[in-house]
Design a protein around this nucleic acid. Sequence first.
DNA 1: GTATATATATGTAAAATGCACATAGAGTAT
DNA 2: ATACTCTATGTGCATTTTACATATATATAC
Lengths: 138, 138
Amino acid sequence: MSKDERKPESALRGPEGRVAEARPRNWLVPVILLSLKDWSSYGYELMERASTFGFEAMNPGTLYRTLRQMEKEGIVESTWETSKGGPARRMYSITDAGKAYLDFWAKSLEQYQQTMDTFFRLYTGQPLRPEKKGEEKK
Amino acid sequence: MSKDERKPESALRGPEGRVAEARPRNWLVPVILLSLKDWSSYGYELMERASTFGFEAMNPGTLYRTLRQMEKEGIVESTWETSKGGPARRMYSITDAGKAYLDFWAKSLEQYQQTMDTFFRLYTGQPLRPEKKGEEKK
DNA sequence: GTATATATATGTAAAATGCACATAGAGTAT
DNA sequence: ATACTCTATGTGCATTTTACATATATATAC
């Protein structure tokens, strides 16, 4: 990735100028963990792989900072790799705690997919009916 | 909803204490708009309805602030309703701009779902394979 | 009258994200 | 040799989003 081909990552905006992009929060962490689950890797490479998940506009600062934070939390660990040509790389690998976290996250994701399905059904289909005065819950 | 049965809204945390919730950012706005699309409503009621979308732990402060902000942006509008018993309610209804915004958001949400599907397929199924040195893209 | 449910709101802090910039090794062209 | 580019990692600061604690007021039930 050459230094000037980075796309601007300013968020999409809807008709009213408000940000209208369904981006998950904390998405970056699970993406990194999933990547590291099978092959250890380093920041620069992870950045490129992240595009697979729609993270094309990934910003280096955020990625590197997140990696360091994740290491502090014990879900990844790193060592310097100086053997290959070019600048040294900090090679990251996932820890057992990291795997556990990823599993946990995946479960949470399942739940959220259901929630979004509900949203869509209501959006495209039958309207959301509120209780009337006489039939309040309990 | 009585004053003390509010659940703590601290986010779900994974094994390492890290937040593990696949909720998209700014989720609240489309949820409100979808609710208002069919029936005008007010904050307190919206809060209860929001639970339908997995917003059980919605916090009043955030909701009311968001509603005011949305009004400033012109995607909802409000009037005071004093006719009914109890404290006055600020009744909100969706504007045309709000409908447009909701449509816009829904499109973005579809993309988001695809991204999550991809994530899930990679998580459960075939591993994510990085290019090896000899076979770089292009 | 005082406790409770209803209803709206603000002030402040913390967390997440974005943007701009800084640094440096190694290879390639001039 | 030196300038340029690609690779690679990072920091500082601002903004946006979300969370937490708390304040206020009206009506009804006891």
